[in-house]
């Protein structure tokens, strides 16, 4: 077991190193430096700025300094938000994005799993067909389309919820719904399929023959067995929620990491772009490791391999 954990962690480190290197290279292929958009500066000032950010050193040296900084947890100063550290900006904005992601996750679980179970218990009924159809709509609607529809309907027309900003629970509702709905549809369809499989199995027939109540069967047998496959897609799902959030943060003016990332890209703020990319990558790698371990813990058959 420990050998497996260590192997997974090492694999994660390799992936992170690859991400760090790729991002670094990509950022340095970019035509035009970070200060190009400003008004013409005297050459001495440009030289000063370049020296300060090591832009005058050869690429391998810059790469070395960058890796050294990463290992020490330093992401360097932001190019655009002068006087602010990238690590500083990230520690302000990351909790916001995390809150949004967790709220969206709640939407996914609360909508997706019950809908899938209800569907599977009444296969091919009107209820089932309706649920599957709505789930397919949910999968197909881009989060920014759903987001804009919600803003228009719930904020501008009805005035029920605030259209933007991040100032309390009422501000979380619409972004979380817009971000989570598509994945909820996906989880609903997956849950429906696996619950259908489980319901057709011999041990459910045995449980019924034993005279267990439907309630006991649902909670002790059906749910436990049908949620394994659902857990296995949680990894990609969380990754999707995390990276998908910058669109939602853009629509609802949420001061999260994603919103800063968009601005950083337009400003060519290299250190901030690299910082956000790395935080996303670390997050995704950790989630994948955790989901793999959880899967092995839930399903003893996986552990053997």
């Amino acid at each position: 077991m420990w050998a497996y954990v260590i192997k997974r962690i090492l694999h994660g480190v390799v992936v992170l190193f690859a991400v760090a290197t790729l991002t670094f290279l990509i950022m340095h292929w970019v035509p035009g430096g970070p200060f190009d958009s400003d008004k013409k500066l005297p050459p001495e000032i440009i030289a000063n700025i370049e020296a300060k950010y090591h832009l005058d050193r050869p690429l391998p040296v810059q790469y070395g300094l960058y890796l050294k900084g990463l290992i020490q947890g330093e992401l360097g100063p932001s190019f655009k938000y002068l006087g602010r550290d990238v690590a500083d900006i990230l520690s302000d904005t990351f909790p916001v994005s995390l809150t949004l992601g967790l709220a969206a996750m709640l939407v996914v679980i609360a909508l997706g799993i019950p809908a899938g179970v209800v569907s599977a218990y009444r296969p091919n009924s009107m209820l089932d067909r309706g649920a599957v159809f709505i789930a397919t709509l949910g999968i197909s609607v881009p989060s920014f389309v759903l987001g804009t529809v919600l803003v228009w309907g719930l904020s501008h027309k009805l005035g029920w919820l605030p259209p933007a900003l991040w100032e309390g629970p009422r501000h979380v509702l619409m972004p979380a719904l817009a971000l989570g709905a598509g994945y909820a549809g996906y989880i609903a369809r997956l849950t429906r399929t696996t619950v259908l499989d489980v319901l057709a199995s011999d041990y459910i027939r045995t449980a019924r023959a034993k005279g267990l109540t439907e309630r006991e069967i649902l909670f002790n047998h059906v749910l436990k067995n049908s949620l394994y496959p659902v857990v296995s897609v949680l990894g990609p799902l969380i990754a999707g929620l995390v990276t998908g959030s910058f669109v939602i943060e853009f629509i609802f003016s949420v001061p999260g990491m994603g919103n800063f990332f968009i601005t950083a890209v337009t400003n060519r703020d290299y250190p901030l772009i690299m910082g956000v990319t790395l935080v996303y990558a670390v997050l995704i790698v950790i989630v994948h490791i955790l989901v793999d371990l959880m899967y092995g813990w839930l399903d003893p058959r996986v552990r053997v391999h």
Binding site: A18, T23, M27, V30, A239, T243, T277, A281, V285
Partner: peptide
Amino acid sequence: FALPDLLMIILITVV
């Protein structure tokens, strides 16, 4: 595969 898609697309289009 481990790289987040949208993020990578953005970085590549920057270049």
